[in-house]
Design a protein around this nucleic acid. Structure first.
Length: 817
DNA sequence: CACCAGGGCGCG
DNA sequence: AAAGCGCGCCCTGGTG
């Protein structure tokens, strides 16, 4: 493709060295090609490579556009594959792009990829902005993802196609989406009756509520509206209903609770109840006494079917159906006309229902994934609705005490550190990794710079550890980092976010990771504004230090119980790799961490201490998942203070793989599978897509290979926790036991158990986790023993580890907990 | 003021 | 040539 000579003549500066990207005459300042009077301009990051261009042209033609009538150009004019462009480079280069736009005067611009987006309209966040049309002066701009990412990840193809088709439709002035019929509004008693009659006839329903804010516990927060899309025998397909609730313009604004009460039994009675992130809606509905249970969640289905794609309702609807945008552009629903809110609400349920139909169909071809979805994810989702509502108890006195101690400690550190700060220091005193701290440590005090990051000298823990003897302030700095983290990340939020029962709340995401693990956080996305808000805390990163973990516990009369799988990931490694040594060790009831400690430290297993075992853990996990000798030297020192030479580390690594001689073959198998299929699967069928296996960059590919090794392990181990939790929940409900599931931490489940029920509950937890019905539920036989270890205490931190005898005879003997 | 990336670190 | 994996939160400094 030859550059358009006319444009080239007016725009190109062949000597440009503004950013230094261009290396030679033929790679420097390449302007675009295509007719100078094109109506449509396509902007990519770089001048397109042939492979990239082929896919793009294919999509454009499929969408009915004529590439010969379009002008193609790059946001960056120079080609240099050895250097990735910075924001500054894009900015420097912008002048050329701007000239091209002025000369061609397109009516439409299609922007491909985040860099091009940044360069063209100055915004970043392609997943957020893709598929939306913006005004850029006189020109209409629509961004979408780069074809390059589609080449690397075929799963992105449908979404990319949808965006291009949408673009084509916009250009030609024709909408690709179907006409969606009107929703009915239940704003009179007669209409409510009609809705109830429809609910009775329906056999499936998508539901959604609009709320005032994100926190159902917030004083005075209510539901603005409720909508459903219904499907049933003899009904108009996709019958949409919207119910105005606590909105200023609502007919029911004074009786909205009463309306909900009337609707509640009928909503719950529809056989199939579908939500998109319905956990959120269910939490609100239950808070207002509508006991609805979700049977199918389209966001979770989307995630388990493809872990990499966007999971929001709008991107999914657009990608899969070419839906027109229907968002509301405001934070305050109350200030919008009620009709707009109701339409928006109704459309949410319409598209949710469409997704439900599609994913139900997809699952027919993915039976194993459907089992994971139906047997693990949906029941777990239900458990988390309650767990998030219930929260965990924080010891109020201890919290107050420790918060004070920590704050005072930090002040003391500050005072001590100030003695080495000169009066004429530049800027503000700030001991966090800031310009001041760097100046102070490395310029003023003259400590050597051992590690340099992109933004300056590193002040990370490992660096400071090496500098310990160089200056007395270093030890204080190290301690300060820890205590500062305690205050800002834990003590402060715990204090501020307790509810009136002294409990803190979290959000669990079943769609938060690529492996199927859960993520936990304080975040609750506000779907209207798109922003995230504080609702609670992350309960998967509570420091193990009893100073913090000892604050979390059970209120009087209850006990905190933690059940965690013993060495679960290594057991899964044994199962998947078939390494005979690992299998034998576990089958004969031995402990691999202890075994490793024994031969690394060269002492008999009986003399291995707890600390030795902890070190061995790092060895095992590291090497199993592909760590090299160099990194081993580093972690052994920074985490455990052990000094190894590179030669020693290489020897340990070699002998590790001699000890577990089955592992290299397993690694090779995972690499081969990943290379061939560009994805790997867990024993339950969870899929991890690894598009980077196609990368030309060896480092990128090697990373994908390590992920291919780790993912099935992490995924399966995590599903074992999920299965345990689901089975235990069923048991507790069936026998009406006073137990609250508080949440999971990857390989552990936390419970709050009423003290008088411990004797009954403890053995059930141990036995359920130790005898999972994997063959019955999933058709797989696991020949490695899986077992759980139980702890009980007033608090999480420092809880008492239970022996089998104590579990079996709880209450008959005195146990100190 | 909002947003973003990077650094650093809490957990498994 | 070398490269553990998976998360979320807080802070800083730069940018618009």
């Amino acid at each position: 493709m030859k550059p358009n000579p006319e444009i080239q003549l007016q725009v190109r500066r062949a000597t440009c060295q503004a950013c230094g990207m261009g290396e030679g005459e033929d790679t420097r300042c390449i302007t675009g090609y295509g007719p100078s009077d094109a109506d449509i301009m396509v902007i990519s990051k770089l001048p397109n490579s042939p492979k990239y261009q082929e896919l793009l042209l294919d999509e454009l033609e499929r969408a009915g556009l004529d590439p010969d009538r379009m002008f193609f150009t790059g946001a960056l004019k120079c080609r240099n594959f050895d250097r990735s462009p910075s924001k500054a480079d894009l900015k420097t280069c912008h002048q050329y792009l701007e000239k091209e736009i002025l000369l061609v005067e397109p009516k439409w611009i299609l922007v491909l990829g985040n860099e091009a987006l940044q360069a063209t309209v100055g915004r970043s966040g392609i997943t957020k902005y893709r598929g939306q049309v913006f005004d850029y002066g006189e020109v209409k701009v629509m961004p979408t993802i780069s074809p390059n990412s589609v080449v690397r990840n075929p799963g992105q193809r449908t979404g990319f196609t949808a965006d291009i088709q949408y673009f084509a439709a916009q250009v030609s002035g024709v909408s690709v989406t179907e006409e969606i019929h009107e929703h009915k509004v239940a704003d009179t008693k007669a209409r409510l009756k009609e809705l109830i009659a429809d609910l009775k006839r329906a056999d499936a329903m998508a539901f959604d509520v609009e709320t005032q804010g994100f926190d159902e516990f917030k004083e005075g927060a209510g539901m603005v509206s409720l909508a459903v899309t219904l499907m049933g025998e003899g009904m108009t397909p996709h019958t949409m209903w919207a119910v105005p609730l606590k909105h200023p313009g609502s007919a029911w604004r004074r009786q909205w609770r009463r309306v909900l009460e009337v609707l509640a039994p009928h909503l719950s009675a529809v056989p199939r109840r579908v939500g998109h992130n319905g956990k959120f809606d269910c939490r609100w509905l239950r808070h207002h006494k509508v006991p609805i249970v979700e049977t199918f969640d389209t966001m979770l289905a989307a995630h388990v079917l493809d872990e990499n794609r966007a999971k929001g309702l709008k991107p999914l609807a657009r990608m899969l159906f070419g839906a027109d945008p229907w968002g509301i552009d405001t934070k305050e629903l109350d200030t919008l006309p009620i009709d707009d809110v109701l339409r928006y609400n109704a459309l949410d349920t319409y598209w949710t229902f469409r997704l439900y139909e599609k994913f139900k169909d997809d699952f027919r071809k993915e039976r194993r994934l459907f089992r994971v979805f139906a047997l693990l994810m949906m029941p777990a989702n239900e458990i988390f609705i309650e767990a998030e509502r219930y929260g965990v108890w924080i010891d109020p006195e201890l919290l107050a005490t420790n918060y004070e101690i920590a704050k005072r400690t930090l002040e003391d550190f500050h005072t001590e550190l100030m003695q080495w700060v000169p009066d004429d220091h530049p800027g503000k005193v700030n001991f966090n990794a800031s310009n001041f701290a760097r100046w102070w440590l490395f310029d003023h005090l003259g400590l050597p710079v051992l590690k340099e990051g992109k933004t300056g000298p590193s002040m990370a823990e490992d660096v400071l550890l090496e500098l310990r003897d160089a200056h007395p302030c270093v030890n204080i700095m190290l301690e300060r980092v820890k205590w500062n983290k305690y205050v800002t990340s834990f003590l402060k939020p715990y204090t501020e976010l307790r509810d009136d029962r002294g409990r803190i709340h979290t959000t669990f995401k079943l769609h938060g990771t690529v492996t199927g693990r859960l993520s936990s956080g304080k975040i609750e996305a506000d779907k209207v504004s798109g922003r995230t808000k504080i609702r609670g805390v992350n309960l998967q990163q509570v420091p193990r230090d009893t100073f913090i973990r000892g604050l979390i516990g059970a209120p009087p009369g209850w006990a905190f119980v933690e059940a965690d799988f013993s060495q679960i990931e290594l057991r899964v490694v044994a199962f998947l790799s078939r390494d005979s040594t690992m299998l034998r060790l576990y089958q004969t009831g031995q402990d691999i961490h202890r075994a490793t400690a024994s031969w690394v430290l060269n002492k008999p297993p009986s003399e291995v201490t707890k600390d030795d075992r902890k070190k061995a853990k790092a060895v095992n996990f590291g090497f199993v998942y592909g760590m090299g000798a160099r990194k081993f030297v580093h972690t052994a020192f920074t985490k455990y203070g052990l000094r190894f030479t590179l030669q020693e580390a290489q020897a340990i690594r070699r002998s590790f793989f001699e000890q577990f001689a089955g592992l290299p073959a397993w690694h090779a198998r995972q690499r081969r599978l990943a290379a061939e299929y560009r994805r790997v699967q867990s024993p339950l069928g969870r899929t991890r897509h690894l598009p980077d296996m196609a990368s030309g960059d060896e480092g990128v590919r090697a990373e994908a290979e390590r992920q291919a090794i780790n993912s099935p392990v992490q995924s399966f181990a995590s599903d074992l926790t999920l299965l345990s939790m689901v089975l235990l929940d069923q048991y507790f409900r069936k026998h009406d036991l006073p137990v609250h599931i508080l949440g999971t931490v990857h390989d552990a489940i936390n419970f709050e158990v009423r003290e008088d029920a411990l004797a009954r509950v403890l053995p059930v937890i141990r036995d359920t986790m130790g005898n999972l019905p994997l063959e019955k539920k999933f058709g797989i036989r696991v020949d490695v023993p899986i077992l759980a270890e139980l702890k009980v205490g007033r608090h999480w931190g420092g809880a008492h580890e239970l022996t089998d005898d104590e579990i079996d005879h709880w209450g008959t003997k005195k146990v100190d907990w």
